[in-house]
Amino acid sequence: MTNVLEINNLSGGYSQLQPVLHGLNFHVNESEIVGLIGLNGAGKSTTIKHILGLMEPISGSVQIKGKTLMQGPDHYRAEIAYIPETPVLYEELTLWEHLELTAMAYQIDDADFHKRVDPLLKEFHMENKTKWFPNQFSKGMRQKVMIMCAFLIQPSLFVVDEPFVGLDPLGIQSFLDLLIQVKNNGTGILLSTHILSTAERYCDRFVILHEGRILEIGTLEEIQQKMKMPNATLDEIYVKITRGV
């Protein structure tokens, strides 16, 4: 197995003079879902921004398939699909145009685009809403647009920031099913969330972030053993760890 995402000793933040992240080390393998867990303000979003290359490391590095952003700017970003916490859409574009734009930006050819787009629309029950504009969508539907655009890309790495809020139960299930499907096809997934029960069921490993530092990292069993809390749920472990700091 190779690492899709490799984070080495990453320190970073908005200001290079006041780091928010302190020496993070973790990776995401192919065919693996890694849960990024942390309180509000723990540094999850900042970590994600560093992975996307929206922010620059103060020290350390972020590599996608062995290359940093500036070593291969063309390939780096094409390998990542990102689903943001709050959906951000073009108010003047329809659902279909969002999908088309994504295909253009990621240089997906027409044949692939059409092959991928129909099953996605069907899965999220949006086939008859392709001509709708974002202001006609509910928050959950906006989220679905972002999700569909991300799945259209078929990248090496998925970065997903709190996807469950606002989605209806069917939407959540469809999303998780698709996630498993792309995972089995070899994609690595970094999933940031507060819904620990879901994370517990779907993630292979966990990175527990607190105040910009990694507190624990590993599979649930590994963390349970280390904390001497066998059979404890992720929720219980999480509360124990963060309260203990």
């Binding site: 063309d74 970003r77 073009y90």
Partner: peptide
């Protein structure tokens, strides 16, 4: 540029 550009056009930066 518009706010969604930082998501949709990120891969097209170059």
């Amino acid at each position: 540029i518009k706010p969604p550009d930082s998501i949709f056009l990120l891969s097209a930066e170059q």
